[in-house]
């Protein structure tokens, strides 16, 4: 069953040139795809490929200029649907500092449920539950400003979870984090997906899409490829054409196997590849 259906959706920005004229920049151009319930979808693309704009169309922050976006069958173009749609599509953005509405962690997480006018005792439960999901319970009373980037982003995820959405959209949520923070956030996303949450991960780090069920590659506002990670990685020219890079492990495995070595070309795990290489070295 599809939670989100994007049908021929387009979005354009108005641009202001230096000479005073205005123009339009088509950020998302006639895009169609579906997101299945419980799936892990990765939306990848280079800077300016329109992936972030597309993400903001999934909960009606941007309304399609053409085509439509349906969440559980409700169109984001209809203003009266928006509240219901945002209840079902939680979103976490890039900069952790710009998503915090309160100066105490638990109050920040409570912001969503408060807006839904949920009774106070249930808010307390939801906040505790959400913080537990992202493993941040011990920081409930702290100020978010003293936490690391990864921790702040996990709190932002908790803030989205407290609304109890069906879909969690991570709009480049790992882009500003250090490798450790990225690992933390990804681990949380994978765990939530294992528990049944539909996750849409927007990123330009190809390493992060390895575990996705479906990878959508975008270039200049259009979808240029869609498929499982291995299907995408095996078309190296296509990936490079979208200004992206196949993960190093995958690239190495592919090149070795192309060069005639008996290495599993679809290997994604660095350790497994290392094992295969060791075996090869022993043989020769």
């Amino acid at each position: 069953m599809n939670v989100i259906e994007v049908q021929n959706a387009s979005y354009e920005y108005k641009t202001y040139n230096d000479d005073g004229t205005t123009g339009t920049l088509v950020a998302v151009d006639d895009v169609s795809f579906e997101i299945k319930k419980g799936s892990f979808v990765a939306l990848v693309g280079h800077n300016g490929s329109g992936k972030s704009t597309l993400a903001k169309m999934l909960n009606g922050l941007h309304k399609p200029k053409k085509g439509q976006v349906l969440v559980n069958g409700l169109s984001t173009a209809v203003q009266s649907n928006i509240f219901e749609i945002r209840k079902n599509v939680g979103m976490v953005f890039q900069n952790p500092d710009n998503q915090m509405v309160a100066s105490i962690v638990e109050e920040d997480v409570a912001f969503g449920p408060e807006n839904l006018a949920i009774p106070q005792p249930e808010i307390v439960q939801r906040v505790a539950w959400a913080l537990e999901q992202v493993n941040m319970s011990q920081y409930a009373k702290r100020s978010p400003h003293k936490l690391s980037g990864g921790q702040k982003q996990r709190i932002a995820i908790a803030g989205a979870l407290a609304i109890k959405p069906q879909v969690l959209v991570l709009d480049e949520s790992t882009a500003m984090l250090d490798p450790q923070g990225r690992k933390e956030v990804l681990a949380v996303a994978k765990k939530l997906n294992a528990d049944g949450m539909t996750v849409v991960l927007i990123t330009h780090f190809m390493e992060e899409v390895l575990d996705a069920d479906n990878v959508i590659v975008m270039k200049r506002g259009k979808i240029v490829a869609q498929g499982t990670p291995m299907e995408i990685f095996s078309q190296q020219s296509l990936v490079e054409d979208a200004f992206l890079r196949v993960p190093r492990t995958v690239e190495l495995a592919q090149r070795l196997s192309q060069a005639g070595w008996s290495v599993d070309a679809s290997c994604t795990d660095a350790k497994a590849l290392g094992g295969q290489l060791c075996q090869l070295l022993q043989k020769n």
Binding site: N59, L61, V89, F93, N95, V101, N115, A156, I163
Partner: peptide
């Protein structure tokens, strides 16, 4: 960005 984040959380 804050406005986007707040709207996303049903504000």
């Amino acid at each position: 960005e804050l406005a986007f984040a707040m709207n996303s959380r049903c504000y």
